[in-house]
Design a protein around this nucleic acid. Structure first.
Lengths: 246, 246
DNA sequence: TGTTAAATACTTGTATACTAGATCCGAAAA
DNA sequence: TTTTCGGATCTAGTATACAAGTATTTAACA
C-alpha cells in the first residue's frame, strides 16, 4: 500500500451511512485520477484504510460497479475501470441525449430568473477564462448545466447526467491544461444555448447543446495518445498486470 | 405473510451470483405487480423465502434502490416504492430523450438487415393485435426498441432505457386490457419510425419517436384513478428520498 | 375505561467468520 | 535452464453474530 503518499486518511462520521460516504469518497478519487485506471482496490485494504469492515466497502463498490467506475473479477480482484473509448463515447452520447432534451424542455418553460442566473455564470466564466483558471472554469460549466437541469425538476435525469459526465471528467482531468484554447469557444456555446432559451426556440437550443457536448471529442484522441496505459487494450490478448509503484 | 399464495419459491442456482439472481427476481416481481407498491420487503423474510443469508439480499435491494424500485427507511423497513406521478413522468422523459437520440443515430447508420428485421416485428405485432394478445404485443414492442438500440452498440444506453421503461411497465401492467384501442395507433407509430430510418431522415424519426413515447400519457391518469392506493400521496411535506443516484 | 410506560419483537447497519476459487512463488523434476 | 507441481496466500461470495434504533404490544396506574 501507498496510503501515506497518494491517499489521505478520511474520518468517517456517523451521521450518514458508512457505505454512502465510502461511495462518495471513492468516486471522487477515481474521477480525480487519484485512483488511476487499473488500480487494484482490494476490499480488505479499503477496510483497513478506512477503519471499517468489508460490508460497507462492498456496498460502495457495488454502486461503483453499476456506474462503470469499477470492475469486479470474481475471486481475482476489484479494479478501477480503465478508460474505454467505447465507454466514453457512449457516456457522451447519453449525456448529449439528456442535455438536449433538457434544454429543449427549458426553452419552453424558462422562468425569468433562470436567464439572469445563467448570465451571471457566464460572466464568471469569462473572468475565469481571463485568469486561465481551468478548474474554476470547469466548475462553472457544471453549474451552468445544473441550473438548466434544476429548472426541469427532473432530479434523476440530472443525476444520470452527472454520473455519465464523470466518465468524461476523468479524461478532462488528464488534460486540464489542454483546455487553453477552448475557453472562448465553450463560452460562446453557452451563450448560444442561453440565446435559444431566451428566444424560446428549442431548435436553436438543441443544435447549440449538441455542439457543446461534442467539445470533448476534440481532446479525446490526444489524451489517449498521451496516456495509453490508462486506456483499455481492446485487443483482448495482452492483459497488463495492475501496476504497483511500491 | 402471504408467500404461499402470491409468490413462488425459486431455486437459486450456483452458476451466477446469488445477489444478481435475487435482483432479477425481485425486479421482475415488482414490475409485474406481484409485489405491489407499498409492500414491505423485510430482509429477513426474503432470506427465509429464498433460503439464503441476508448479505446477498441486501446487495440486491441496494441495486433496486438505485433504480428507484425500492425504498429503504433505516431501522424502519424496506418497501416497494409506490408509483409516483413525478417519477413516472421523469422516467418517460428520460426514455424519450434516449430513444429519440438512438433513432436519430440509427437513421444515419442503419444496416440493411435492420429494416427487414423490424418489418418482421411489425408484422408479428399486427398478428398479435388481431388476436388481442396484449402481452405478446407489448413484448414485441420491447423487441422493436431493443433492435434499434442494438444497432447503436450503446449497451449502457439500452440498459438505462430498460430500467426507466420498467417504471412505466408497472403502470402498463395495471391496465393491459386498456390497451385495446391502441394497437393500431402504436403500430402506425412503429411504421412511421421505420419509414424515417429507411429514408435516412432523423427529423422524421425524432417526431415519430416522440409521439410514440408519449403514448403512455394517455393511460396514466386513468390508472391513477383506478388504483389510487398504489400511488404516492404527494402531500405538501413530501419527504426527499435519501437515495443517492450517483 | 383511558393513559402512560416499560418490555418485547421487530427493523436495518455493521462486524466478523468461513468457503471456494484464483494467483503466486518456490521447489522438485526433466 | 526449463517445466511442472503443490502449497501458501491472496481474492470475492456468503453466512452468521452483534449493535442500535423503531414500532408494537402489554401491563400498570389513574
Amino acid at each position: 500500500m501507498q496510503n501515506s503518499k497518494d491517499t489521505k486518511v478520511f474520518k468517517i462520521d456517523y451521521d450518514r451511512p458508512t457505505s454512502q460516504q465510502l461511495f462518495d469518497l471513492l468516486r471522487d478519487e477515481i474521477v480525480a485520477m487519484v485512483l488511476p485506471p487499473g488500480e487494484k482496490l482490494s476490499e480488505n485494504s479499503l477496510s483497513d484504510r478506512f477503519g471499517v469492515s468489508r460490508t460497507p466497502v462492498r456496498e460502495a463498490i457495488a454502486k461503483l460497479v453499476t456506474l462503470g467506475f469499477v470492475e469486479v473479477r470474481p475471486q481475482r480482484g476489484t479494479f478501477v475501470s480503465k478508460l474505454s473509448m467505447t465507454q466514453i463515447l457512449e457516456a457522451r452520447f447519453i449525456r448529449e441525449a439528456l442535455e438536449v432534451a433538457i434544454t429543449e424542455h427549458v426553452a419552453g418553460h424558462a422562468p425569468p430568473e433562470l436567464v439572469a442566473e445563467c448570465e451571471v455564470i457566464i460572466d464568471r466564466q469569462h473572468e475565469a477564462a481571463e485568469q486561465q483558471d481551468a478548474l474554476l472554469f470547469q466548475h462553472l460549466d457544471d453549474e451552468f448545466h445544473q441550473k438548466l437541469a434544476d429548472c426541469t425538476h427532473f432530479e434523476r435525469a440530472a443525476g444520470l447526467i452527472q454520473s455519465e459526465k464523470a466518465h468524461m471528467d476523468r479524461v478532462r482531468n488528464l488534460s486540464l491544461q489542454e483546455l487553453g484554447g477552448q475557453y472562448e469557444r465553450v463560452l460562446e456555446q453557452h451563450r448560444a444555448i442561453l440565446e435559444g432559451i431566451k428566444a424560446a426556440k428549442p431548435d436553436i437550443c438543441r443544435e447549440a447543446m449538441r455542439t457543446h457536448t461534442r467539445e470533448i471529442l476534440t481532446i479525446l484522441s490526444k489524451v489517449q495518445s498521451m496516456h495509453p496505459d490508462y486506456f483499455e487494450q481492446h485487443s483482448a490478448d495482452s492483459e497488463v498486470t495492475p501496476q504497483f509503484t511500491g
